[in-house]
C-alpha cells in the first residue's frame, strides 16, 4: 500500500518524530511504499543537519537521512514553515540572503502543495503531531 506521512513536531521535544520513524520502519519492513514524508509546523526541525544530540542518544535527523538514502524516500520540508524557523537549503539561503544553509542530506524544501498531493496520490495519510 502507498502511505503518506505528515510530521507536525520537531525532534526531541515531542515523541511524534520517533513514533513516525518507527511506523515508517515497520511499514517498509512489511513491503509498503512510503510515498512521501511531509514535515510541517515545528516538524521542519527534523531536517537540520546541525543537530548534535548526546552520543548515547538517537540522532533523529541522521536517522531520517539514512532511511531516505536506503529506501529512496521523499522527505519534504514545507518551505513556509521552514522559512519561519530558519531551515534552509542552498537555494533558499541564497534567495533570502542568508550566510549559510542547514538542511540535512535526503531532505528537500518544497511547498504545501506537496502535502495535498501526497493526500491525493497515496492510499493512506497518517499524521503524527502533538
Amino acid at each position: 500500500m502507498k502511505l503518506a506521512i505528515q510530521v507536525n513536531e520537531g525532534p526531541y521535544t515531542h515523541q511524534a518524530a520517533d513514533t513516525a520513524y518507527k511506523f515508517v520502519e515497520a511499514a517498509l519492513e512489511k513491503g509498503h511504499e512510503i510515498y512521501r514524508i511531509f514535515f510541517y509546523h515545528d516538524g521542519v526541525n527534523n531536517g537540520t543537519r546541525l543537530t548534535t544530540p548526546p552520543q548515547d542518544d538517537r540522532n533523529i535527523v541522521a536517522r531520517w537521512s539514512a532511511l531516505a538514502e536506503k529506501h529512496n524516500i521523499d522527505l519534504v520540508i514545507c518551505v513556509a514553515a521552514a522559512q519561519r524557523r530558519g531551515i534552509a537549503d542552498a537555494d533558499e539561503a541564497k534567495r533570502n540572503s542568508k550566510d549559510a544553509d542547514n538542511i540535512a542530506p535526503g531532505f528537500r524544501i518544497s511547498g504545501l502543495g506537496q502535502l495535498i498531493e501526497a493526500g491525493i496520490q497515496s492510499d493512506r495519510l497518517v499524521v503524527f503531531g502533538d
Binding site: F23, A26, K30, R124, L125, V127
Partner: peptide, 19 residues
C-alpha cells in the same frame, strides 16, 4: 506493536489523529 499499527492503518479506510 508498530507492525500492528501499520496493519490497522491499512485495514481501515483512513486514519484520523486526535492531537
Amino acid at each position: 506493536d508498530y507492525s500492528g499499527f501499520v496493519d490497522l492503518v491499512c485495514e481501515t479506510d483512513k486514519t484520523t489523529a486526535w492531537l
